[in-house]
């Protein structure tokens, strides 16, 4: 896939791949329908490049979200051939002769075409208070709180989340029950729980049937995570924490 010599590019440029893109135009479509487009099969084109080609050259009415096209912003997550993927990091050449089927992320209301409504997630995210909670400090904050490498390592992995929502889309529990707090929100709660500077307590938010206890450890969130956050592990670890706090009366409440 790194072979981008001129000859290869030209040969590839003459080939095309079929992209089947889900369209949903409110007021026009009763439910999503697929529309096919033929786009050039370039060895260095990601699915997102294919969508941009459609938008620029073939059909300007197609709607989708994207921004950084380098796996950092987390806005181009879609369902590609049934799998939750970042379209900027999924290459067309992965799908051989095609077709490549692009649908919106599963489990979310569809606003238009490939754009989903993430308001539910944003509300869940703020419910876990994903910030450092401090007590007894007056503004302006001037003190520094140094951390040892071990203290950093304790939560660093969970801080890599880019809120791309692939984990929600891959989670059957969330797709069946949209009230489930979900992988990313719980992983981010753990990111702050495990931070030595945090003084908050998220027990009452996380210790709920719709929160960590809704998870049945399918493990798909971890498999699809493009940032190796491992939300499944974050949830299981908090289950143990919450269970021990529930049975041990002397543990902090």
């Amino acid at each position: 896939m790194t072979d981008t010599t001129q000859a290869v590019r030209q040969a590839a440029g003459t080939r095309t791949i079929r992209m089947e893109v889900a369209r949903y135009r409110p007021g026009q479509d009763a439910e999503p329908v697929f529309q096919g487009y033929d786009v050039p099969l370039m060895s260095d084109w990601a699915v997102l490049d294919g969508l941009n080609h459609i938008k620029d050259q073939l059909d300007g009415s197609l709607s989708y979200r994207w921004s950084c096209r380098m796996g950092v912003c987390g806005s181009c997550g879609m369902t590609v051939n049934g799998e939750a993927r970042l379209t900027c990091g999924t290459f067309l050449s992965e799908y051989g002769d095609g077709p490549v089927r692009v649908e919106p992320l599963k489990g979310f209301p569809i606003i238009r075409d490939l754009v989903v409504d993430i308001d539910g997630f944003l509300a869940k995210l703020s419910s876990v208070r994903p910030w450092l909670i401090r007590e007894g400090e007056d503004l302006p904050l001037t003190a520094e709180y140094a951390q040892t490498p071990e203290q950093l390592e304790a939560y660093k992995q969970y801080s890599m989340c880019i809120n791309c929502l692939l984990c929600y889309s891959a989670c059957p529990v969330y797709v069946l029950d949209p009230d489930f707090l979900g992988p990313a929100a719980i992983a981010l709660a753990q990111r702050y729980n495990l931070d030595s500077r945090d003084m908050g307590d998220r027990f009452d938010v996380l210790n709920q049937e719709d929160a960590v206890w809704g998870c049945t450890f399918v493990g798909e969130c971890t498999k699809v995570c493009p940032k190796h956050v491992d939300p499944a592990e974050a949830i299981q670890r908090y289950k143990l924490t919450a269970a021990l706090r529930s049975v041990l009366p002397w543990s902090r409440r």
Binding site: G27, K106, I110, I111, P172, V175, L176, E220
Partner: peptide, 28 residues
């Protein structure tokens, strides 16, 4: 179309065969 109904987001129906969609769901 100009008259797009407000709040017309499409909510996909429950997929009754979700566990058959991927190998890992089936293994789960």
């Amino acid at each position: 179309k100009t008259e797009v109904p407000a709040g017309a987001a499409y909510r996909p129906r429950r997929d009754r065969l979700w566990f058959a969609r991927t190998r890992s769901y089936t293994v789960f």
